[in-house]
Design a protein around this nucleic acid. Structure first.
Lengths: 199, 199
DNA sequence: TCCCCTGTCTACCATATGGTAGAGAGCCTA
DNA sequence: TAGGCTCTCTACCATATGGTAGACAGGGGA
């Protein structure tokens, strides 16, 4: 109950992102979103002309959030190879940890106009390829045991996507989709990368 | 148009499996399924009392299909380590190749009674842990470079699940969700494992 | 022949959902 | 104060969807 309230439009966007990403667009009605935000359904339709337009806005916003993550990863670079690996791993996992629904939105890309969907998939691609590039550099420098960096990144990416999209997937593997659980997974992957370091 | 038609119940089950797994339960109406099968909606409701009951039957059937896959993988064993690795990889990837919707059903587990959902997640767990066990054996025997077998299996599993669930994920990584594309991915993973073999 | 059972259908209903119409409250500016 | 603009609301509508009621066709047994 702060005096300065987040603008309605942003609150709608945030709630829709989480609900769409976690449950899927078809499973979430405008009423549910409005209820979550604490406004009437018509307030939603004032800010976004239709459900489709709301989804498009959500995907664009997600793409923007990912841009921020990627740019932060670009800036993060130290001389310690382990730290640098950690930075990349963090860059790949952070969206899943901070906003599990973000990557789950990939599921809905086909519903929006192509240029909108391309923004999101483009950012995800960038995230994956940046990780691949970095791992490739480490290998070239002899600090990482050589393997297919694209595959490693793809596996990481698929893991992240799988986690973000399907909490059930996580449970199948015996993990709980909590921040702590995701941290544990990140540590495991980090250990995997550390083990891959050239002896 | 064969003279011997598949029983209606089985045709409904098959269509519902594909539609539920690929698009999600909420995105698929009973009318759509009935249309796909070529019967009236009420015929669906004659065989399955409700949509929820249909979903439960679909999940049970999927669990049974996975059981067959796993048992086949258990039987497959030769002395050539590469062939044995290939057999495990095949076992993990086969459901995704033959029936992409099968693993996508994980998404819907939380909707059905716990004992029904547990059947499916249990089989998926078995699939993943069998791969982990096998990779562990190979490592103990010195034929595979040591790394966390559980993590490798989890990564494979997450990849499979991601592919099966989200064709868009595959496209982000530059792959097409076709059988040929999946074969390519399988070969890549095989190459990864081969590269991991102890020198 | 009659009856009942199986399987499929047409007709219909109640509800939920996406979306429209328009009123009203609050605020800024003239 | 008046007028208009921004934002949110109540009331309502058309359609789609899950589900019910019951008719009808066909086949097998008494």
């Amino acid at each position: 109950m702060s005096t300065v309230r987040t603008p309605t439009r942003l609150r709608i966007l945030a709630a829709a992102t989480d609900l769409f990403g976690l449950r899927g667009v078809d499973a979430v009605s405008l009423d549910v979103i409005a209820n979550e935000v604490g406004v009437a359904k018509q307030t939603l339709l004032y800010w976004f002309a239709s459900k489709d337009e709301l989804l498009a806005a959500v995907l664009l916003e997600a793409a923007n959030e990912l841009t921020v993550v990627i740019e932060a990863a670009v800036r993060a670079s130290t001389d310690d190879p382990l730290d640098r690996i950690d930075a990349v791993v963090r860059a790949v996992f952070r969206p899943a940890v901070r906003r599990p629904a973000l990557l789950g939105l990939v599921r809905e890309v086909s519903r929006v106009p192509e240029e909108v969907g391309a923004r999101l998939t483009g950012q995800l691609q960038l995230l994956a390829s940046r990780a691949a590039d970095y791992l490739g550099q480490e290998m070239d420098a002899g600090r990482l045991r050589r393997a297919d960096p694209g595959l490693i990144a793809a596996l990481s990416y698929a893991t992240v996507t799988g986690i973000a999209t399907e909490p059930a997937v996580l449970r199948v593997n015996g993990w709980e989709p909590t921040p702590a659980g995701l941290r544990h997974l990140r540590d495991e992957l980090r250990g995997f990368l550390r083990a891959a370091l050239a002896p």
